[in-house]
């Protein structure tokens, strides 16, 4: 088979920086929760979780370096789940 892939090597340093960012966001979300921002607590926590998962997907899981197909499909899967949750809530929000 053709061997077009596996040329990109991610540096150790990159991973360390990503980990630091991830840990920072984890502690931030814990800190925000203790502040008691009311309804914004959940949105803040989920927003940070979203950023964290984006970092994991792009760097740890190499979506940034791989073929675009994987990134597009991964985004579609999250979009699909989002749509399903949205449509389900059309029932629960207006019942």
């Amino acid at each position: 088979m053709e061997k077009e892939q596996h040329t990109h090597i991610v540096k150790y340093k990159t991973y360390v920086f990503v980990l630091i960012a991830l840990l920072f966001m984890t502690f931030t979300s814990v800190a925000i929760t203790s502040l008691n921002l009311g309804p914004y607590t959940v949105s803040a926590a989920l927003l940070l979780a979203g950023c964290k998962s984006l970092l994991v997907l792009l760097i740890f899981m190499h979506l940034k370096f791989d073929k675009k197909f994987y990134a597009i499909m991964a985004a579609s899967v999250f979009l699909l789940l989002g749509c399903v949750i949205f449509i389900t809530f059309l029932d629960y929000l207006y019942r």
Binding site: T26, V56, M61
Partner: peptide
Amino acid sequence: LENSGLYWHLVDLIWIFLFPLFYLIT
């Protein structure tokens, strides 16, 4: 090895969402 890594990141990814949803809703 890459595939086992991908699987492991998936486990991490799910936890990233489980953590705020169960522990941080105070």
